[in-house]
Simulated scan of single mutants.
Amino acid sequence: MALLVYVGAALAEIAGCFAFWAWLKLGKSPLWLVPGVASLCLFAWLLTLVDAEHAGRAYAAYGGVYILAALLWLWVAEGFRPDRWDAIGAAICLAGAAVILWGPRAG
Rank of each mutant, 00 (worst) to 15 (best):
Met1Gln: 12
Ala2Gly: 03
Ala2His: 07
Leu3Asp: 15
Leu3Met: 15
Leu4Met: 11
Val7Pro: 00
Gly8Trp: 03
Ala9Trp: 01
Ala9Phe: 01
Ala10Lys: 06
Ala10Asp: 04
Leu11Met: 05
Ala12Asp: 06
Glu13Gln: 03
Glu13Asp: 00
Glu13His: 01
Ile14Gln: 05
Ile14His: 03
Ala15Glu: 13
Gly16Trp: 03
Phe18Cys: 10
Phe20Asp: 03
Phe20Cys: 03
Trp21Leu: 11
Ala22Lys: 11
Ala22His: 10
Ala22Val: 05
Leu24Cys: 10
Leu24Glu: 13
Gly27Thr: 05
Gly27His: 03
Gly27Asn: 02
Gly27Ser: 02
Lys28Ala: 13
Lys28Glu: 15
Ser29Arg: 06
Ser29Trp: 05
Ser29Val: 07
Pro30His: 15
Pro30Val: 15
Leu31Tyr: 11
Trp32Thr: 14
Trp32Gly: 12
Trp32Val: 13
Val34Thr: 08
Val34Asp: 07
Pro35Trp: 00
Gly36Phe: 08
Val37Asn: 05
Val37Asp: 06
Ala38Leu: 12
Cys41Ala: 14
Leu42Val: 15
Leu42Asn: 02
Phe43Ser: 08
Trp45Asn: 01
Trp45Cys: 01
Trp45Arg: 00
Trp45Gly: 00
Trp45His: 02
Leu46Ala: 00
Leu46Gly: 01
Leu47Met: 02
Thr48Glu: 01
Leu49Asn: 01
Leu49Phe: 02
Leu49Ile: 01
Val50Trp: 00
Val50Cys: 02
Val50Arg: 02
Val50Asn: 03
Asp51Pro: 00
Glu53Arg: 13
Glu53Phe: 04
Glu53Asp: 15
Glu53Val: 10
His54Phe: 10
His54Lys: 14
Ala55Lys: 13
Gly56Thr: 01
Arg57Met: 11
Ala58Thr: 07
Ala58Tyr: 06
Tyr62Ala: 04
Tyr62Thr: 01
Gly64Val: 06
Gly64Met: 04
Val65Phe: 15
Val65Asn: 07
Tyr66Phe: 12
Tyr66His: 10
Tyr66Pro: 03
Ile67Tyr: 13
Leu68Gly: 05
Ala70Glu: 06
Leu71Thr: 12
Leu72Arg: 09
Leu72Thr: 12
Trp73His: 07
Trp73Asn: 04
Trp75Glu: 07
Trp75Ala: 10
Trp75Asn: 08
Trp75Gly: 06
Trp75His: 14
Val76Gly: 08
Glu78Thr: 10
Gly79Tyr: 04
Phe80Gly: 06
Pro82Lys: 15
Asp83Tyr: 04
Arg84Ser: 12
Arg84Ala: 14
Trp85Pro: 08
Trp85Glu: 08
Ala87Asn: 00
Ala87Ile: 12
Ala87Lys: 06
Ala87Arg: 09
Ile88Lys: 11
Gly89Phe: 03
Gly89Leu: 04
Gly89Ala: 11
Ala90Phe: 08
Ala90Thr: 12
Ala91Cys: 06
Ala91Tyr: 02
Ala91Val: 05
Ile92His: 08
Cys93Ser: 15
Gly96Lys: 00
Gly96Met: 00
Ala98Pro: 03
Ala98Val: 11
Ala98Asp: 06
Ala98Lys: 07
Val99Ala: 14
Ile100Tyr: 09
Leu101Tyr: 06
Leu101Ala: 13
Gly103Pro: 12
Pro104Val: 04
Arg105His: 13
Arg105Cys: 09
Ala106Thr: 12
Ala106Ser: 09
